[in-house]
């Protein structure tokens, strides 16, 4: 059974003429121990979705099951108990400005009614976990964005939740800080055995730490699956545009500023293929010339993910066989334009 499950989730804001359907029937299942990403453009309904998962937003209809229990049917006090099983971090950190870093981390411990003498050591432990021991006495106004989010993470983990919800947790941070915060999330997830749901509008965030991803568009999940699959075979235009954003590819020869001599072929490959002497094989076995027009290697969850744009020139039969050979390998081949008159 999935740890988090949303069934036919609908959320409508307002009523009558000016109502907005933020969620239009979302189904979601997050398995224990995974990092599940939700990506979508602004206004797609991502925040609404994640806020429904801890009932900061009450769904109009549908169910949210957390650890097998229906969140939408819970009383206020049951809900508070469930919320303590789910930590949440926010885009703007939302720390208490009147409390120090340590004071912020101790907040959930205090409201959960933990005895004072247990709070202090727990706070120290948490600040150490996020690498902020030396900032225990600093107020949020004295911390950088990255440091604030570390405090946010420590606060979210204070009462030992099983789930961590991240709503655009890195969107207010620069790329380097984003990486380090994501690395921290992955690290605490592994150490504490958490399940993470992460909302973002940046595919690079998904690529760095997510196991699976759901792509949202206009209140619906239009595609979902393992990250690597969505990267190599995006099945929806929205997914495609997010993938393009990371691998920055051009789909036409015109975009490259040159005229291809033969077939324009895009290869997407992962992992070990990077070591194959691909180009020389093509030349020796099929007598085709393969020119690299574009190429790059990215990382998806630490594994290499390469994209190559080749211009295959040569006799037609050779090109046909070359394509067949490429398709037999563990890679995704996309022919962008067949050279018709060659």
């Amino acid at each position: 059974m999935a740890l988090i499950e949303a069934r036919q989730l609908v959320k409508t804001f307002g009523d009558g003429q000016r109502s907005v359907e933020a969620l239009r029937g979302v189904d979601l299942a997050v398995e224990e121990g995974e990092i599940f990403g939700v990506i979508g453009l602004s206004g797609a309904g991502k925040s609404t979705l994640i806020r429904c998962l801890n009932r900061l937003e009450r769904p109009t209809s549908g169910q949210v099951m957390i650890e097998g229990r229906d969140l939408t049917a819970m009383s206020e006090s049951e809900l508070r108990q469930s919320r303590r099983r789910m930590g949440m971090i926010f885009q703007h950190f939302d720390l208490l400005s009147s409390r120090t870093a340590a004071g912020n981390v101790s907040f959930p411990l205090e409201t959960a009614g933990q005895p004072q003498k247990l709070i202090k050591p727990r706070v120290d432990e948490l600040l150490e976990l996020v690498g902020l021991t030396d900032k225990a006495g600093a107020y949020p106004s004295q911390l950088s964005g990255g440091q604030k989010q570390r405090v946010g993470i420590a606060r979210a983990l204070a009462v030992r939740p099983r789930i961590l919800l991240c709503d655009e947790a890195t969107s207010a941070l620069d790329p380097r800080t984003t990486k380090s915060i994501l690395a921290l999330i992955e690290d605490v997830k592994n150490r504490l055995g958490l399940t993470v749901v992460l909302i973002t509008h940046q595919m690079a965030v998904i690529a760095q730490i997510c196991d699976r991803v759901a792509v949202m568009d206009n209140g619906r999940i239009v595609e979902s699956g393992p990250v690597i699959e969505v990267f190599t075979r995006p099945g929806h235009p929205t997914s495609q545009s997010f993938v393009d954003e990371v691998i920055n590819q051009t789909d036409s020869a015109a975009g490259l500023g040159c005229q291809p001599k033969g077939d324009l072929v895009r290869l997407l490959y992962t992992g070990r293929l990077a070591r194959e002497p691909l180009l020389s094989t093509l030349g020796q076995r099929f007598q085709v010339e393969a020119a690299i027009l574009q190429g790059r290697v990215d990382q998806i969850k630490g594994a290499p993910f390469g994209t190559l744009l080749l211009d295959l020139a040569g006799p037609e039969e050779g090109r046909r066989q070359a394509l067949a050979y490429l398709k037999s390998l563990e890679l995704t081949v996309k022919v962008l334009n067949h050279d018709a008159d060659a």
Partner: peptide, 11 residues
């Protein structure tokens, strides 16, 4: 947001 953070912590 600060209030919601407290709510989501179960306050």
């Amino acid at each position: 947001g600060v209030i919601e953070a407290a709510q989501s912590a179960g306050a």
